[in-house]
Nucleic acid binder design. Structure first.
Length: 111
DNA sequence: TGCTTGACATAAT
DNA sequence: CATTATGCCAAGC
């Protein structure tokens, strides 16, 4: 039985629209654990293969793909993001100013 | 039960 | 803008 915490993280990741990216801190906030960005990464680490969670849309606050201790999926992540329409700069970073997804409580924001 | 590690964030240098 | 240092919380041993 997976921890509810992880389920919340995965749910938040699932809510990320295609062509957008979110930071671990944002995901944590959406999951109800604002400030616990590390736990977001931890939950994704426990993420089973074959899940419908677009984990590749989750990156760090620097706009880079975190290098996991386990495997090699960081290249796959970049590929998937490019497939979604996300552009990478020469440093392999994403323009968070444009692609960072922000959870909106409503639609009317910019008055 | 206590120390170490970890798919991070933020501030300071 | 890159690197270093510190803080946060949870899981593993």
């Amino acid at each position: 039985m997976t921890s509810d915490r992880n389920q919340r993280i995965w749910a938040a990741v699932r809510s990320i629209p295609r062509g957008r990216v979110a930071t671990y801190g944002d995901i944590a906030a959406i999951a109800g654990m604002e400030g616990h960005a590390r736990q977001t990464g931890y939950a994704l680490h426990d993420l089973p293969g074959g899940s419908n969670v677009p984990w590749h849309r989750v990156i760090n606050a620097h706009g880079e793909i975190s290098e996991r201790t386990r495997g090699d999926s960081h290249e796959l992540q970049r590929m998937l993001l490019e497939a979604e329409g996300v552009e990478f700069d020469l440093g392999g970073r994403v323009d968070l100013a444009r692609y960072r997804w922000k959870a909106r409580p409503g639609s009317k924001l910019s008055s």
